[in-house]
Each structure stands twice: as structure tokens, then as C-alpha cells.
Design a protein around this nucleic acid. Structure first.
Length: 154
DNA sequence: GCCAACGTTGGC
DNA sequence: GCCAACGTTGGC
């Protein structure tokens, strides 16, 4: 039984890879999309590997990797009225949104930009490259994960 | 259950 | 800042 691989998007202006390094562990809260929620709640397991991607950045790129250290549990920021992502429909008794905890693993010496990913024929199947793909939590294959790690170390 | 309006994401 | 793509909401 082997772990799975994921890509998490974050806008560096709100939470960057360096923030993760500083915090040592991050609660991946604030995801408010049902498809991404299902991954967080049902599929992402302790020990799974994560590509940490900066969206809305210059350039947009995979910055490094992270490790899942806690499996899906209710995103309590949803029922905190003054959090960044309140959702009054979610309650402690009946949570709608979920999150996981991650810790930093490896910061790449070479940030792997979206352009480099596009230019690599081995990665042409990546979900990230699909038109209109906006999922902030998405699966990647082991092969894609390893190829991007290789590019990040070169 | 359809679909128009609206809001958000995210690359450029 | 623009705008295409997509998700969500709500009237009917």
C-alpha cells in the first residue's frame, strides 16, 4: 500500500511556501469547493506527498514538496464568524468543510514554473494544464510527482 | 430541473 | 486590470 500524490495551490500573498517553513505545520483551511473538499475529507492520507504550487505569482510555479501529517478533519474556521472563510451553513455538529495538516519537506533549488511544466512532454497529461482547471487541491500521479521533483533539483 | 445572473479563480 | 472558465445561487 503506497501513498498518493497531490498538488495544493496557494497564493503566496496569502500563504507561501516560506510561511509553511516558518510555521513548520500548516492547517490547510479555507478550501470551499466540494470537489476539493472530497479529496481532503476522503482521499488524502497521512504520509501522502504534496506539490506546493504558487498561483497568482510571478511566475506561477511549484516551489517545493510537503507531507501530509494529519488526515481530513473538520475545518473549524468555517463556523468562526470572523475567520477568513466563514460559512454559516457549516457547524461543529454538522461540518461541511474539511482540511488536512501538512509540513514542509523539500524546497526546490529550481522553482518549476507552469511554463516549464507545459514545455515538458512527459507532463502533458497533468490536470494542472487542463483548460479552466481551477481546483486548488488536485491529484497528481507518482510519475508526475517524481518528474517535477527532478526538475526542481536541477 | 432548467438556466440566467453572479461571484470567484487564476493565467496573462 | 482583463477576461475566460467554471461553480453556485435562486427564480420559475
Amino acid at each position: 500500500m503506497e501513498g498518493n500524490y497531490w498538488l495544493f495551490k496557494s497564493e503566496p500573498g496569502s500563504y507561501s511556501y516560506d510561511d509553511l517553513v516558518k510555521d513548520e505545520v500548516a492547517e490547510w483551511d479555507g478550501v470551499r469547493n466540494f470537489q476539493a473538499r472530497n479529496f481532503l475529507r476522503d482521499s488524502i492520507k497521512h504520509g501522502d506527498h504534496v506539490l506546493f504550487y504558487h498561483s497568482n505569482a510571478k511566475p506561477t510555479a511549484v516551489i517545493g514538496t510537503a507531507l501530509v501529517v494529519r488526515e481530513g478533519y473538520p475545518d473549524y474556521t468555517a463556523w468562526q464568524e470572523h475567520s477568513d472563510h466563514p460559512d454559516p451553513k457549516s457547524t461543529a455538529d454538522n461540518p461541511i468543510w474539511y482540511m488536512v495538516d501538512i509540513k514542509p519537506l523539500e524546497k526546490f533549488s529550481n522553482h518549476v514554473s507552469l511554463q516549464e511544466i507545459r514545455n515538458n512532454p512527459l507532463l502533458e497529461g497533468m490536470l494542472l494544464l487542463k483548460r479552466g482547471m481551477r481546483l486548488s487541491v488536485q491529484p497528481v500521479t507518482k510519475e508526475e510527482f517524481n518528474i517535477i521533483c527532478g526538475m526542481g533539483r536541477s
